[in-house]
């Protein structure tokens, strides 16, 4: 993968970005009732998918915003990129 599209700045060299790992759901009620196992799952365990993956990227040499990309982990095809807020 050479180019990645920042939803704010447009198509840029991938070297401008930092990869932030696969997207995961935070444990429900993190401050009160989330179990240790839920935290371990959130912090450490990964699906590490072979296929389309939802993942975090950070545009460090650009607008400085985090966004989500849907990328195939073998072919490197990026289907779409968007801000988390816009997917809610």
């Amino acid at each position: 993968m050479i180019l990645l599209t920042c939803p704010n700045c447009g198509e840029r060299n991938v070297a401008e970005f930092r990869f932030g790992g696969e997207c995961k759901k935070r444990p429900a009620n993190p401050e009160e009732s989330a179990s240790d196992a839920a935290w371990v799952d959130y912090l450490y365990l990964k699906e590490n998918k072979l296929g389309m993956q939802q993942e975090w990227w950070y545009h460090r040499a650009g607008c400085g915003r985090w966004f989500i990309a849907e990328r195939h982990t073998n072919t490197q095809v990026v289907e779409k990129t968007y801000f988390w807020e816009s997917s809610q």
């Binding site: 790992g21 696969e22 990964k46 590490n48 982990t73």
Partner: peptide, 18 residues
């Protein structure tokens, strides 16, 4: 590098990224 895929076949999730 493929260990997460094999582990998933047994229903085990690993703290690994490839």
């Amino acid at each position: 590098g493929w260990c997460s895929l094999i582990a998933a076949m047994a229903g085990v999730k690993l703290p690994v990224e490839t």
